[in-house]
Nucleic acid binder design. Structure first.
Length: 190
DNA sequence: GCGACAG
DNA sequence: ATCTTGTCGC
C-alpha cells in the first residue's frame, strides 16, 4: 500500500492519502484520505514529524490492514538512520520501506541505464539502501528499508509496482488521490 | 564557516 | 511540496 501527502500553501491545508494496491494486478482495492492543517514545518531530516501523524490517521480509514507500507521518502537512508518509513513501520507494527525521488545522505554510482538496474546507496562503510532504475533511461529512485523487511524484497516490490512509471504505483496513486481530494475539498460544497 | 538538504 | 504551457519523444 502507498502513502503520500499533498499541501495547499494558500490555505495551509494538507491531505494525506493511503491507497491499497494489489501487487499482482496493480488494482486499487482500498483507499482513504484525511484533510487537515499543517502542524509542523518542513525540516530536512524531520519529515516524519510533519507527515506521520496525518498519514496514521489516513491508515485508520482503511477497511483492512495492508501487508506492507510503501512510503514517499526514506527508511534508514537517513541522517539518523530513521526516516519516515521507519517511523510508520514502528508505529503500526507493519513492514515498511521508503522510496525517495532524490538522495542527500548517501553516495552511489549511477546504476545501469535499463529498468531493473541498481547500485548500493552507501555512506562510509555501510549500505543504507539502493538506487533503483525503475524505467529505462529515467532517473533512479532511492529505496531503503523501514521496518520488518529486507532491502532485496523492498526493491522487488518497488520494481513490480513500476511496470510503466518511475514512481511506484502505490505512492503514485496516493499522490493523485491526495491532490484530487485537496482540490475537491476546496470546491464550494465539498 | 559553507553548501546541501526526503517532502 | 508547489508555482505552470507547450513541447520533445516513444
Amino acid at each position: 500500500m502507498g502513502l503520500d501527502v499533498s499541501y495547499e500553501k494558500a490555505t495551509n491545508r494538507v491531505c494525506a492519502a493511503a491507497v491499497v494496491i494489489e501487487l499482482e494486478s496493480l488494482a486499487v482495492t482500498d483507499m482513504a484520505t484525511v484533510v487537515g492543517e499543517v502542524t509542523f514545518p518542513y525540516v530536512p531530516g524531520l519529515l516524519a514529524f510533519r507527515e506521520a501523524p496525518i498519514l496514521l490517521e489516513a491508515l485508520q480509514g482503511l477497511t483492512n490492514e495492508p501487508e506492507v507500507l510503501v512510503c514517499d521518502g526514506y527508511g534508514i537512508a537517513h541522517p539518523r538512520r530513521f526516516g519516515l518509513a521507519c517511523h510508520l513501520g514502528v508505529l503500526t507494527g507493519l513492514p515498511s520501506f521508503g522510496v525517495a525521488k532524490t538522495s542527500f545522505v548517501a553516495d552511489f554510482v549511477d546504476p545501469g541505464p535499463r529498468r531493473g538496474a541498481g547500485s548500493p546507496l552507501r555512506e562510509g562503510g555501510e549500505t543504507l539502501g539502493r538506487a533503483v532504475r525503475t524505467q529505462d533511461g529515467v532517473k533512479p529512485v532511492f529505496v531503503s528499508v523501514g521496518h520488518r523487511i529486507g532491502l532485496d524484497q523492498a526493491c522487488d516490490i518497488t520494481l513490480k509496482l513500476c511496470p510503466r512509471y518511475r514512481i511506484p504505483e502505490a505512492t503514485r496513486q496516493a499522490d493523485i488521490a491526495s491532490r484530487r481530494m485537496l482540490r475537491t475539498a476546496s470546491w464550494p460544497g465539498g
